[in-house]
Design a binder for these strands. Sequence first.
RNA 1: GGGCAGUUAGCUCAAUUGGUAGAGCAAUUCGUUUACACCGAAUAGGUUACAGGUUCGAGUCCUGUACUGCCCACCA
Length: 1131
Amino acid sequence: MKIKQLADGPYDPNKTETNILEYWLENSFYKPETAQEILGKQGIKNPNKFTIINPPPNAYAKPHMGNVSGYAYQDVFGRRARMLGKKVLMFPGKDHAAQQAEIVYIRDVLAPQGKSKDDFTRDEFYAEAYSYFNKIMKIAQDDEKRIGLSSDFDRDLFTLDPRVAATVYNTFSKMWSDSIVYKGVRIVNWSPGLNSAVADIDTERKEIDSHMYYIKYALPESAKGVHENIKKISTDLTSSYTAKVVQKNKIKNTYLAKVNNNYIYFYSTSTFKENDEINLINIGWSVFLKGSVCAVAVTEENKITGTISEIKNSEIFKAIFNSVNVYDKNIVSNQIPNGSAFLILEDEFTQELNEDDKNLQNKYAKGFIIGTVRPETVFGDTAIAVNPNDERFLDMIEQKIKLNSAYGEIELLVIADPGVDKEFGTGLLKLTPAHSATDYEIYLRYNNSNETRPINYKNVIGKDSKLNHLCGKYEGMHAEDDRDNIANSMEDEGFVVFKEKAKSNIVICERTKTIIQPIMSSQWFIDTDKLKLPALDAVEKEDVKIYPEYMTKKLGVWLKNLRDWPISRSIWWGYRIPVWYKGEITENTDANGNIVLSIGGQEIKNLPEAVEKGLAKLSLPSEFNPILIPGRFAPENANFYAEIKKKYPWAEQIYTGEIDQTFADYEKAFAKTNFENRVVVAHSLGAPAIIDYILDKKIKIKSLILIAPSNPDSANFNSDKDRGFWKNIERISDIANFCENVTVIYSDNDEHFSVQNFKDFIQKLGEGVVSVEELNKAHFATRKYSYHSEELANLLAKYESVYKAEKESLEKDGWVQDNDVFDTWFSSGQWPIATLTAEGLMDYYPTDVMETGYDILELWISRMLMLGLYLTGEVPFKNVYLHGLIKGEDGQKMSKSKGNLVYTEDIISEYGADALRMMYIVGNKAGAGYKVDRQKLKGYRNFLNKIWNVSRFTLSNLGGSSESDLEKIKIKVAEIKIRISPEEIKLEELQTVAKIKITELLEGKDINLIMQSSVATLLKNVDEHFTNFRIGMAAEEIYMHFWHVFADIYIEQIKSKIFLTDREGNPIQRTEGETQERIDTLATLLVIFQKYLQLLHPFIPFLTEEIWQHIPSELKDSETIMYSQLATYRE
RNA sequence: GGGCAGUUAGCUCAAUUGGUAGAGCAAUUCGUUUACACCGAAUAGGUUACAGGUUCGAGUCCUGUACUGCCCACCA
């Protein structure tokens, strides 16, 4: 037995890490197939599976520290599982990041070449982008390997791989037939920067300074009638009064009219003398008219002091008084606070208006004043909404009111909706369903409960952000840039009564930072109602556990509030929506502001109608996609399907559990599959199952190929005929009505067992005319047992050519494919299924851990959960571990613009991958952010050196022993059991005790037993930490224990027992007992040392493997530490 | 406006769910003793943001306050 010695320190990670990486890759240690083989040799015959799908990073950029941090966690889980005897699959991939990648590609690749998207056809653009990203992806993979991620890189999968495409399109197809996906005209977030719709979650809010415009909706003819109302005002000017109002809200007043530096409000209750000098102080606002009494008050900071007359004669007073009033009768504000002061007006406050001055008439006309920060949307108003409990407007609800507005005379319905805040602005909400998500919701709510009298939307802003033909003279003006012009013009006409500065939240596009324009447009949506409930249920029932736990609640709330998910994006980079139209599909705004869809010039109401008329259809890319149904004990008994799937990546394999003869499992699996017009291959018991299913559900399929498990002339047939395929196949005679052709393959003979044969067979059998044996003799005498794979291949090839021919004719026949592509989250939301399906590994589903940053909990985790449950009925992962976001050295979020990006390769070359992994993991907890910390990195580099030197100590002391001693050590090693012995001193508790004292305490005790006990405790604690996903604590505890118990205490204590020479180099004489003690100690040292290496391996794989390689094979259970078995602690 | 998280040593963060507040780095002192100076031995550093409460016992649970960060949201 020879013990290789380690080089002198300090440890240099750069020398060893790349070699170790090469060793792992060369030996394919990362593959589950290798795991199966190695574990098998170790006596673990049926290892449990353990699966982690690596979140695919975006393919377009060089990864920085933040991108890579997740791999450290994923790898810890994976490596530990491997060392616990599991067959580990870690599946890497890269994401095409549709929208973002297209922007980056155009900006960073095309623009510097002086090119733009317009220089390419769609296909050219796609091809060039694909080859570019293909190159870039390699960089990301290098980083993944370099940090030690032990994923099966041979399987690295791109989200635009044809095999993924198959899953993505099949999912869409299933959603199409389940009516979960629809194309609808609906409000969308239109990003002018992307020239595409984006989902809510791709937007962010920003507070900006803007104006609140108070817009007049005048009652026609009311300008003339102004006197009448005023005349009714009664006065009781008996005493002077200083207005003083109990105030509640300090923010709302800033929204109010500010005129001549004073805020002006209306109030009532009290009286003033005409010439009283008064101070009006108030902070509330209320239009108040009872018996035509009106009053005004001002804020405390801006008292109006003056006589009543002076106040009344102020311009603003007149404006407000005349404008913000009433539609009808007596309207009472219900929120006059106690102690309010009121100014009562008299009928002298009237004014003869010049009949010709229309603008003034508008300004002083009675009507509504409604506050808005977006005056340009008034052209899209289709209703006025009030709170149902707002007493001021009770009479008006459900009335249609003719109004003069900035765009002429219109009729608006007043509706009630609880969403309207009666205290905001004037308590009235102008409803613009086409250009406000809020209004759109109210619009939907109203129309859902008032089907007989629906309100409309009116789209007045185009995708170019400009006002359209419905805006009269404002047509062509820009909704954002020309806002002030529009408002000024309205002000001149008297329709903007006053304006004031206000803060407003605008929605901007997260990617391009342009202002989102809510507009009506036809987009593809996923109806999330049917998807979110199972997801919500899974979260609540803890079918999927989320770490940190508090994020569970966050996800639940998000799911509950989820609206329909827009999945179409108007870009080229991604999966093109597989729906075809008979001619161009166009979207126009008609005279009423409705969005009208036409296909090839023919107007359609909605897509189902178009489909019915033959103007639209779903047509998946022309990849042949047969459905493969396994026989009993699926899917293992259908291994031959793997061959088919190699040739046809689009083939869709049905996964079932063990099948009983009631076919319950089949039915469950079938329900998730769309059989419509497909070629179906069914093996053995799958054949009767699918026949029954097709007949029951009345599904039309294209072709059915049945593979019989036995041949009627086989020796087994007599027993087979009463069960399985043969017993259950009776209904085959009816199937001809549901598919174009049926073929049964069971022999080497080219003759097929046709439907007609079967019909005859079954009929005669049923009539008792023939026996099975007779038929067997007549028809099957020459057939052999095994099924004919070549024949199956030929058949499929034939169907494929038919299938492709059909598809290719689409464009010739004038069909045009939808121009949009899927949202990137639509495809990545199916990632666990797409990856495993692509490799035929669905038996690894559901996966064990999904590890990712908490920032994409809603974006990604939720989608995977919904789609996973939808497609398979099972959660895609059992645990979700969310790591915190890593910040730059300055403590700020890392971003290119801040210039604080730290690249992984720089850190690794300075400190090594192991130290970096430690920095990511030790002492950190799920969900909590942390900084790139060079002090920590230095500390962990020192730790690695410590391990190196402890290893040198251990190996050199073993190496110094004689061959016979080594043999004795080997025997002793096998006897050592790491157990907790409760009576002994606990070493881990002595860390803070002075070292001299420890030596005293240990006098006469068996240090080896005490150490074993201490390590056992460590093992147990680490188990617990892992069970609860506290990996940061696990790492920290191992670190502490290794350094301060093992190195500082144990090794110091045993030195005298194992050294062969004294300080002067003279040999030490030992008694027989002392020699035995030395052997025992070295054996214990070795066992414990290995245990530490194993415990440390998931965290610092490179160093531990390097050291492991120096331990002689005779003294270890596995050549690589990756597969050495670290049993969990058992009492 | 709502929700969630956080506030602990000079700095960065832990504390296994209520049981003596810890680590790394930094600081001070000592020590080059056959693994290690990328080391060892020792020292100092805390009213756990604040104010109450429950408890034998609170960093941890409850109530409130003040900051910080994140997410969500229909105040037009």
